[in-house]
Design a protein around this nucleic acid. Structure first.
Lengths: 189, 189, 189, 189
DNA sequence: AATGAATGAGAATTCATTCAT
DNA sequence: CATGAATGAATTCTCATTCAT
């Protein structure tokens, strides 16, 4: 991807995370990316297109990070814990600053093929894991959307609170929390 | 509260839910609330103040709804299920449309006393429930913030998916999901 | 019509006549009309609408001037000469500066009812005159559009040259020219 | 003239005729002429210069067409009718599309020598014809500018209406119109 | 000579806020 | 108190022009 296009996307993400939508002007993006205002329009139709493409860009990044170091040879629980921590670490490190802020969901979306493809990619391994867990009789017989809300969502939610300074989580609590998420999705006789 | 002020707040909430921040102009709020543009400024300092006050207004509403039909005489599990369903129903009914959209968290906040007070009120009964559950040895020994992320957050998360049409939840699955949340927060010997 | 709207239309006409389309910015119109830029948009949808409305406005003015002091009781030749001179004087006096410049025809048009109505009004008396002249056996048996091109168009054409300083016409030549236009449209045995 | 320069001029004329001044950007000219944007600036100072040169270019073309098949050996009336039809045909055929649209007169002009020379050339034969007609006692004793407005202008005016679809002229009417123009400029006993 | 990416000044338009009525 | 016309700064986007390759 062109150096300038990449810089523009990164500048946009940074400004959005820092100032929110209200504070996002094309002039500021241009300044932050060290390009002229008009240059943005060589790479993006208009402001909406910039935000659409940013959405896809972040989604791709997250899809990649989420399933890092996960493969379906690993025991299910290890797969689960790895993903849980991948989400946590991504949020804590500020890798994808928009995710923390809950502003990512508010990016305007289009139903582009690219996005569909990325979303499929993103959840492929997650789906595989949940399906495998259910086949093994370890997980509750619930749809993957629900298992995801029970098991992984709290990671993002808690990381958000942690990063925002609302509430600090220490390592011991973190492990206990992962265990609790595991409790939520597994069958208890 | 003055009739006009109330109308302005409701108009703002409706427009925000429908069109998002991008489409919220003071002129539109005035029109929707059937007042003159200048009138808004008799009740609100400026646009930011309107959004701050809307935040507090919604928070108060939600705090109220969340703990409806809950009292600490009830068995813990019943308290928990009631709150869980209060959240779910509020979201499903579109009572507080901003909550569904995840736009509530993006309202600008100030650290007003009013807000702190409301937040305390909001979580007082929730805190009481969690504390009681821990004292009884039923709940895991985790901070209330974590218990909340494990037990109640999935309700809001799932309701969001449901309302957005991403994923439909039937009654049976709903009950199983509440059970799973309960599994997340209770001790398993 | 609102004082401000009238001022905006006049400012637009003046600037167009003076600087052409190239030099017509909304800021300049606002300045010339002594209103704020935003005020223009209370009276006109956008720039195109301003030009559309200007077209109608001028057309109404011209329709009125063209047939001033003409009624169908007058001898045909007097009606014709009056109209011819109405065109000439309007152009010479700079009453409708856009007409001189040939820029009027280049105003963007819409097919509004108002415009159709005005155009009908404009040519009603002209049509009546030509029809009467043909009925009397004085005029050639040609369509009114052609009679207009032969008899009245040269007035506008010459006035344009006169005003632009390309060529000066004195009173004697003027009368001879009207006679020549008359020659163009009447039958010669 | 360089192939590229010619292509640029033609592209400009086409785009002007099709979209008007509003839609004429250097990028579009470049694209239409199949050259790079920067290349235009090797042949033309700037956008104004491009339009100046286009004016001269068209004027030269028109000057040439106007007096095609005309020489001062021919009878006056035949010279006149030939020129009249040259104008008519040029307009009808869309040879010089800007002329029809009345946009030609709105091209920015400079008082260049080249232009003066071309205008002289253009009217040399016309002047000769009018002078000869007056010397023969056939034409009215009016300045050539006036004779031109009376005799030739209606050709352009009518062709414009014809091309714009406002009014259709058939062959019979066309001949009658030329006769009427002749009536306008000749002496009647 | 030719290219076309990059520039940045300038244009149209919006909208929070004010203030005379 | 309430109004809503008016304001003008700020925003998005365009496009003539330049210049490194």
């Amino acid at each position: 991807m062109s150096d300038k296009k990449e810089r523009i996307l990164q500048a946009t993400e940074k400004l959005l995370a820092e100032y929110g939508f209200h504070g996002l002007s094309m002039q500021m993006v241009a300044k932050e990316a060290r390009v002229a205002a008009g240059t943005i329009y060589r790479y993006f139709e208009d402001k909406d297109d910039l935000l659409y493409q940013l959405h896809d860009h972040i989604l791709g990044y997250v899809a990649n990070k989420l399933t890092a170091n996960v493969n379906d040879e690993m025991p299910i629980e290890q797969q689960f814990r790895t993903m849980w921590l991948n989400i946590w670490n991504m949020a804590i490190n500020g890798d994808a600053p928009l995710i923390n802020r809950g502003q990512f969901e508010n990016l305007p979306r289009r139903n582009s093929q690219e996005q569909r493809r990325l979303e499929k990619t993103m959840f492929a391994k997650v789906d595989t894991m949940f399906n495998q867990g259910k086949a093994d009789g370890v997980f509750k017989d619930l749809d993957n959307e629900i298992l995801s809300a029970l098991g992984l969502e709290p990671s993002a939610c808690l990381a958000r609170k942690h990063v925002n300074g609302v509430y600090a989580v220490d390592d011991e609590a973190l492990n206990a929390t992962i265990d609790a998420c595991w409790d939520a999705i597994i069958k208890h006789k």
